[in-house]
Simulated scan of single mutants.
Amino acid sequence: MLEAVGLTADEEAVYRLLVMNTAASAQDIAARGGFPLGCAEGLLASLADKGLATPTDRQPWQYTASPPDVALLPRLQRNADALDQARTAVTELLDSYRSNLRRRDAGQLIEVITGVGALRQHLRQLQDNARHEMTWFCKSQYVAMPSGSNATEFEALARGVRYRVLYEQAFFDDAGAVNNVVSGIRAGEDARSVPELPLRLAIADRAVAICSLVPGGPSGSPNEPTAALLRDSSLLQALAALFERYWEYAVPLHAEDVPSVARGAREVHDAAPLAKADRRLLSLLVAGVADKAIASQMGLSRRTVQRHIHHLMTLAGAATRMQLAWQAARRGWL
């Protein structure tokens, strides 16, 4: 049992005899342990060299056991440290091996996934293997995972994985989507909303990603989805940067806000073009004109200007004026 601290089975047996007795001579060890006298003397000398036994001045020469916490625990700690260093070295070597392999073989960078079943399995494995963070683009009309079916997310959240999820506004039109997003937020998901997303995307620990290649529907639809599994590469870094860009300008969601955002998505989708006065107000706002000056130029009170701005923010699903300006530009309101 003590091989981990460098003891042979015979040395461990002798050390245990010393621990159980105040002191013992080579003759005592030979008699109690069934060792030849010469062997017992050698084992005692070996334990003394390793700091596990101490000779006394009693005749015949006797030995006492060194305290286990003093003699053994430091050895275990040194071995544990050495094991950690070896594990780190192996990890570095493995990273270098994979990096060199990816340079020689493009198949190590991109794997094509076809079909609903395969895509669903890969998405679950991606989350199971995540250790720090998952980032998602969630578009409307599910392909592999219907809204509310991703139980793997809750398991990952429970073990400390951070989830940052971007929902496009049309996502909330899917059946049950509102309640499912609320459940995710309450479990710890960090959620935001944008008017529209360019593709379906999931990234684990900024090291592995799955993104859509060819649009497709759920199982049974005429067109099966085709996606790519990407490993560490410039393309993956570009997708991670794309996520951060959308995240920066997205509207943060809280559990109590999701129903109103869902309603806002439908209202904006069906909204008529902005009135001429609202377009002028937006142009002045984006130009950096202060509320007081806008009110003066448009012949309105400052309070009325602020009320119009708040209405436009609600219409755009924006939490700040900066987000309103960004949304206005995207929607062609300016």
Rank of each mutant, 00 (worst) to 15 (best):
W326C: 04
F243V: 10
L253M: 11
E248Q: 06
A158S: 04
A316K: 13
L334H: 04
D278E: 03
E11Y: 08
D84T: 10
V165A: 02
A30M: 14
D173M: 12
R159S: 05
P215C: 07
T152G: 02
L76R: 07
R58V: 14
T54Q: 14
L157P: 06
A209C: 08
T56V: 14
K50M: 12
Q85H: 14
V182W: 01
R162T: 15
S283F: 06
V165C: 08
A13F: 03
R231C: 00
N79L: 07
M145Q: 09
S46C: 07
G34R: 02
E111P: 03
N21T: 12
A31C: 04
L94A: 11
E3N: 03
R164Q: 13
L7Q: 01
G117S: 13
Y63H: 10
N129T: 02
L300V: 09
V19L: 15
L83C: 14
L157T: 08
L199I: 09
A255E: 15
E267V: 07
H254T: 14
A65Y: 02
Q27F: 12
R303L: 08
P60H: 05
V161Y: 13
A187C: 00
L236Q: 10
A271F: 00
R103T: 12
E155H: 05
A318I: 01
N129P: 00
D278K: 08
L2I: 02
R102F: 10
T226K: 07
D105F: 11
Q327V: 08
T54S: 15
Q327P: 00
A228H: 09
A13G: 01
P74A: 03
T88Q: 12
G299L: 05
N179R: 11
G34N: 15
D69M: 07
P218I: 02
L201P: 02
Q62N: 04
V251S: 03
V289Y: 03
E92D: 05
R103F: 10
L253K: 06
A227F: 15
N180D: 08
A262C: 13
Q141G: 08
G220Q: 10
G264C: 13
L253C: 01
L94W: 07
G317W: 02
P198R: 09
C39G: 06
P259C: 02
A250G: 12
N100Q: 03
R206K: 05
R102N: 02
L73S: 06
G264V: 15
Y249N: 07
S260V: 14
H122Q: 03
V143W: 10
L109F: 07
A45M: 08
L37V: 13
Q121D: 14
P195R: 15
M1H: 12
F171G: 05
A156W: 00
F172S: 05
Q323D: 04
V161C: 03
L94C: 06
T91A: 02
Q121W: 00
S233W: 09
G299F: 14
R303M: 10
G332M: 03
A262W: 10
A40M: 08
I309Q: 04
Y142P: 04
L274K: 05
R131M: 14
R78H: 04
A40D: 01
V181I: 11
E248G: 00
A175W: 01
S212V: 14
M145R: 08
K292P: 01
D278Y: 03
V305D: 09
I309T: 04
N179V: 12
F137L: 02
V116W: 15
R186H: 07
A170E: 11
L157V: 09
G6N: 08
I110K: 15
G332K: 06
R16V: 07
P55G: 05
W136Q: 08
R58C: 11
V182D: 06
G332N: 10
